[in-house]
């Protein structure tokens, strides 16, 4: 199917997943829309050159509701999510796979919009789509569109690992927390915040490259992208892995005023909410200022801030310190009841 073969009334039908002619036409549309970011040769597997001795691999599925939002869509999230997972372990993201589950009735125009987002975001991140798969399900068996991306990156430096973090290391956030969650919840329910608070969804490999280029290797100990479970989940993960207390100064947490307003209304703590374009970096004290300067020089890190440090206390807790210096334990949630944010 080339793009001239469908009009605004075209939609996904079961036969688009049958493997017959309509499937081939759909694949043609996908390949044509992805353009130069698609590297596939239409073989059963992609065959790719890899240099260096070690690769990073990751996979993620995406069921975000709604799949189309103010400043992005599920396609953008699907590229960013996997690119960011590759980047935070210190690898250079190179290749992505693209799996799609499409519900019968999905307008073709919507599919093209998602593919266009994938193409533009992949271009920005410098990655190629190397193979893909499409399945079509009956009406009601999925919610419009689900995606899966797996990714491969190569290491041009030593991998970043949680085990490299030391007591005294600074905890730095690359940007505000909570915006992605507020934006999506506001669109779902029509809460009125969706134009003031936008999703932070972004590919962050370029931001990290900027940081790596400004400090000696080893100064950035470990990095996580702050996604499901929010900052709280990341901090607990490190405290548990390190066996040390991580202390955060509550007042330093970067939260957009409208986001705080919405979270207060919804009774949600931003520290537990999902993001799609925020990094938590654990950094040697000697490199703190240079890392902050590097982050702030990039458009995705211009509100970077130090929020706390890893303490020498051998107790795997996360402590929040308020303005008066009082400390309280940040509990890990058993569940957040905020499904389908990515």
């Amino acid at each position: 199917m080339d793009r001239s073969k469908y009009d605004n009334s075209s939609e996904i039908v079961l036969d688009h997943g049958s493997g017959a002619q309509l499937s081939h036409e759909l694949v043609s549309l996908i390949v044509e829309t992805l353009g130069d970011v698609y590297l596939g040769e239409m073989e059963d597997s992609a065959m790719l050159p890899i240099e260096g001795g070690r690769i990073a691999m990751t996979t993620d599925s995406f069921v975000v509701d709604p799949p189309f939002f103010g400043n992005g869509d599920i396609g953008k999230i699907a590229v960013c999510g996997t690119v960011n997972d590759l980047a935070v372990v210190g690898s250079k993201p190179l290749y992505l796979t693209l799996g799609m589950i499409l519900e019968t009735g999905l307008p073709m125009e919507r599919l093209v919009r998602v593919l266009t987002s994938i193409r533009e975001t992949a271009r920005e991140a410098g990655v190629r789509i190397v193979c893909g798969d499409t399945k079509v399900v009956r009406k009601g068996e999925a919610d419009r569109i689900y995606l899966n991306t797996a990714g491969v990156g190569v290491f041009e430096r030593e991998p970043l690992r949680m085990g490299r973090v030391r007591p005294g290391d600074r905890v730095i956030l690359s940007g505000p927390i909570g915006n992605h969650t507020v934006h999506l919840l506001s669109i779902r329910e029509g809460l009125g915040f969706e134009q003031r608070v936008l999703s932070d969804c972004a590919p962050l490999n370029g931001l990290l490259e900027t940081v790596f280029g400004r400090v000696e290797e080893g100064m950035v100990r470990s990095v996580r992208d702050v996604t499901r479970g929010g900052l709280a989940a990341v901090l607990h993960e490190y405290a548990d892995a390190l066996g040390h207390t991580v202390r955060v100064d509550q007042e330093t947490l970067p939260i957009q005023p409208e986001t705080a307003m919405a979270m207060d209304m919804l009774g949600i703590d931003p520290i537990h909410t999902a993001n799609e374009g925020c990094l938590c970096l654990f950094v040697a004290p000697a490199a703190e200022e240079r890392v902050l300067a590097a982050l702030r020089s990039h458009r995705y890190g211009n509100r970077a801030v130090t929020i706390g440090e890893v303490t020498g206390r051998a107790d795997p807790l996360v402590l929040l310190r308020d303005r008066a210096g009082r400390e309280s334990v940040l509990e890990e949630l058993r569940g957040a009841e905020l499904p389908r944010l990515c």
Binding site: E189, L191, G192, F193, Q195, R196, E258, M261, A262, M265
Partner: peptide, 14 residues
């Protein structure tokens, strides 16, 4: 009050 009034008021404010 805690749903439609609150969100409509916030939206109006913005």
């Amino acid at each position: 009050t805690q749903i439609c009034v609150q969100t409509t008021a916030a939206d109006a404010f913005f």
